[in-house]
Design a protein around this nucleic acid. Sequence first.
DNA 1: TCGTAACGGTTGATTTTGCAACTATCAAGA
DNA 2: TCTTGATAGTTGCAAAATCAACCGTTACGA
Lengths: 165, 165
Amino acid sequence: MSEDFDLGAFLPYRLNRAAELVSLRFAAQYRARYQMTRPEWRALAALGFHGRMTATEIGAHSTMHKTKVSRAVKALETRRWLRRIEDRNDRRTEHLELTALGLRSYRDLAKMAQDYEGELASLLGAGGLKQLERGLTALEDAMLSGTGDRQPNSQSKPVAKHGER
Amino acid sequence: MSEDFDLGAFLPYRLNRAAELVSLRFAAQYRARYQMTRPEWRALAALGFHGRMTATEIGAHSTMHKTKVSRAVKALETRRWLRRIEDRNDRRTEHLELTALGLRSYRDLAKMAQDYEGELASLLGAGGLKQLERGLTALEDAMLSGTGDRQPNSQSKPVAKHGER
DNA sequence: TCGTAACGGTTGATTTTGCAACTATCAAGA
DNA sequence: TCTTGATAGTTGCAAAATCAACCGTTACGA
């Protein structure tokens, strides 16, 4: 059966699995506490951590598609956790900023995140954690700078479907 | 703003990002070549690699929800890439097996996967790869054995037999 | 040998996503 | 000024993921 391809060792497979295991557990926490979705938490975290930023910046930062960001922002706005501030020089963009309410929630969630991180760290042990972090750093560097953009077209027959324009 | 929580270093965040970057690029390949979805590729890979197995086993292995597996299997069956084999002792379960056609596609895809893995490895460098792998192993061990909790499945199973490696 | 609970798997409804097309704005030329 | 082409962000819609209920079957204790 197995020829020489080892599925269990295949990096995308392992990474996905790991990411799922790690983030689902945390997602369950903020979901239970605030009924918030993952994109919402991500946007909130970005804003809380970096302070005022635009939707596009949030997207770039958290690798979320702009529609996801748009909807997450709308949801947070509805909760009155953030407000939009227009740019005087460019009326297309809007700067986003957490309200006091939003900031409070952010702090609470950041605390939870830290706790969770500590939990993970102790589960992993110092050695495992360090290796994982280094490995991830290497990967990030490789993926982002190594090949420039993110259009996947290395080898393989393209059967381009949509696309023109 | 930032207090002491560092979003950019938050493990779930980094892992998700990494997993996305790595698997999306590969997903684009098999999608372009065979018009197949991620669950389909996963099911195919599991079957191709492990040989005959049941839908539940596939799910346990690839951490896919049973409905996802069910639909992926149906799709693969429609393509005539797999066949169902009934169990003589238990008429609820069905064993799944790739057809010759399915096996051929699996081999082709496994080849692509290997190529991709090689590409990743060279991007990462020997050191980075090794660290990432070790870190992932540590994480897997920690998450799976460290705390018995499993996914939020309505019908959870008693600790899947992860003969994994 | 019932009755009940659990299991393997499927289906339909609901929610979430991703893509494409759209609005509105800006910027640079001709 | 009038085009043409980007850019920021939103929205409609179709594909995909999730959830809950379901069917037929099996396991097991009373």
